[in-house]
Nucleic acid binder design. Structure first.
Lengths: 222, 222, 222, 222
DNA sequence: AATGAATGAGTGTTCATTCAT
DNA sequence: TATGAATGAACACTCATTCAT
């Protein structure tokens, strides 16, 4: 390998690293602004100010506001996906896997309520491509849940329910802590919400023969 | 009754009627535009063009764009509330009442998918007052469902579940046909969605002793 | 004279009278609004509301807003001219005539401060024709003062001063109670203003030989 | 001094200088337009066109049209104040000081007739703060005149007249060359106006014992 | 004679985007 | 690489004016 290449490669790597850091810097500034006010109400100038860079610089890293919004949305979903991945504890019993994953979802959503709302709100700001990326991310997010449900059904722990439907319902209900927070928050604590929803939804699905195994999950409905 | 009143009243009534017609005309034009693109992306000019009136005229009937957005959102929710009220069939059995209401919800939502998405999206465009109006409307919408659940629990037909939670879950899941349409639609028909969700959610809640009464609702899960 | 004419004439007179009343009604409403805020800030709608008539009606009596502003300005000047004419007391001594007229000017201006300011402000809203009408009115207003000065000079009661200049200075200084009210009002009462200005300006002009005749006018400067 | 400062300071200074130049460029374009037509009749677009910049740019230097109007008015008054300050010649004799200052006022006003009219017209466009700034500027402008009058009275050169009143009358009369230009201009030259007014007003005030000292100022009235 | 609904050009203002430095 | 001055199209909103009733 010629010296030339050897000299350039690290340079390029460094540049790429710096570039990435810049992107993150801008995104980091944009996220809370857009969570609070929605992207149309946030100007590029405001983002630049918040990030401590110039407007022009943002355009070096994002071709347009549209693209920045896209990146923000994806970033938010990515973060949530990462948090989920990091937090889900491995469980032997697939039912407990489901319950654990649901609890994790809810907890992550509790901590990122604004982010969840952002993904719902911005979805129509995005173009077709952007939207499909977001959808894919979401599908990937439910995936572990769905496969756990599948396994549980196969093992006869759950009744023969529609796995995709059930998994998505779990996600939807978890999201509702964010989307309907104004409704739930004055009526119950997050812990109550989590406990009740777990009992409610799992008791649906668990095969009667195996209900006795999960008194802790089913609570009053055991 | 004096002639004065007799002469004035119809005139005013006629004016009020015309005024109302104009409002509706504008709203009628604004709704699909906002459903498609979200209010920030729809200009007053575009609405005026669509309605076939001048921009100035819109401001005779709506003090600001904000107010128009508010009216659009409320109108959409009102329509849905009315459709619900008209369609819910009276049932003796509270469980069947719940199932019927859920089916109605889902059907209305199927027919007003864009409207549902609009209410989620615009909620952050609205001001505090507007938002609370929207919330109230939604609460009023779940109310019949909640009271049916309450009754069913009291009669021992359902397990001792959290009525508000369950009712809201039903609404949330119904909404998901709109919000997650891109996910569900390629995987199942609306009828399958409705049947599966009904079975899934009710099977959760129905007291084991009474499950045998509802084989039609529970399907495979009976 | 044919009966035809005899029948029509009173009708027309009545119509003219009604028409005049309408004009006055509108002007009456417009004057305080324009005095307060300046014509550009007052909408035709606001004037119509204040007058208790419809916008359309105003256009039956005034061809345009411009013309209405013109009429308002002329009306205000006319009123002041009339008040002056009514209040000036006939005096034998031309010097006392001058002093009396000046006092009257000042008093009228004190009571119509806003009107005076309006004439200064609106002068550039008017077109060339309108402006010249206003100027003519003002010239006619100073006229009695100027002729009194002329007479006084001829009779040797005043030094050989420039009559037009002096008369206009008197008007200008009288106006200054309105134009510089923010300056004078905190420093002196209107009576002090009037007394001091009279003494100051007349003492300028009165021929030394005749100063002893007017101790009441000259005060400390006698 | 660290290099850092040495490097930054000039940059910032240069930026400030450019920024100032832009402000002046815009003001320079706005002044004649507003002098001619009054601020409400001048659109931001018109100003931008006149200045050869874009509308948007104006808003980088002036937060609103209001602020621009304010700046124009203050600028005009500032200019006049500066011209006055530069032109007033120091005189030993306070009476000659007064006459000199009056002549300067009149001359400046002759050269800035439109500016004077603008200050009268725009005063009601300004908000309370803006108005008080303008008033303060005017008071500061009369100040030298007022103090000269005070001195002259103390030295017995003038009769015991009200210094503030007299000073303000001098200003008012000087302004009248602008405000009543349509009246004076066809009747006399500026020089005649200045000479006559000086004689008229000073002859008022000069103590009889000292009149003989100022035959040049008093002219025919000596 | 009188209304006021309707118009649409025009306003002040914002902001995504570009580009000379 | 980084800046921020500069652009100008677009926006929400107003209001003098017209005209069908």
């Amino acid at each position: 390998m010629p010296r030339h290449d050897a000299a350039i490669a690290p340079e390029e790597a460094a540049r790429a690293a710096r570039s990435d850091a810049r992107r993150r810097q801008v995104l980091h500034a944009a996220v809370p602004l857009m969570e609070r006010s929605g992207s149309p109400a946030v100007s590029m100038q405001a983002i630049a100010d918040e990030a401590g860079v110039s407007v022009g610089l943002i355009y070096r890293y994002f071709a347009s506001k549209q693209e920045l919004v896209q990146a923000v949305t994806e970033g938010v979903l990515d973060d949530m996906a990462r948090m989920l991945a990091e937090t889900v504890e491995p469980e032997e019993d697939p039912v407990r896997q489901i319950a654990g994953a649901f609890a994790t979802y809810c907890t992550v959503i509790r901590d990122s309520r604004q982010a969840v709302m952002l993904t719902y709100r911005e979805s129509n700001t995005l173009d077709e491509v952007g939207r499909s990326v977001v959808k894919e991310l979401e599908v990937r997010t439910v995936e572990p849940l769905r496969s756990a449900v599948d396994t549980a059904v196969e093992q006869g722990l759950l009744r023969p329910i529609h796995a995709e439907l059930f998994a998505y319902d779990l996600l939807t209900v978890a999201h509702s802590w964010a989307l309907k927070h104004w409704y739930f928050a004055p009526r119950m604590t997050f812990e109550e919400f989590l406990r009740s929803q777990t009992a409610l939804l799992l008791s649906t699905a668990i095969h009667p023969e195996h209900r006795h195994r999960y008194p802790d999950l089913l609570g009053d409905l055991a």
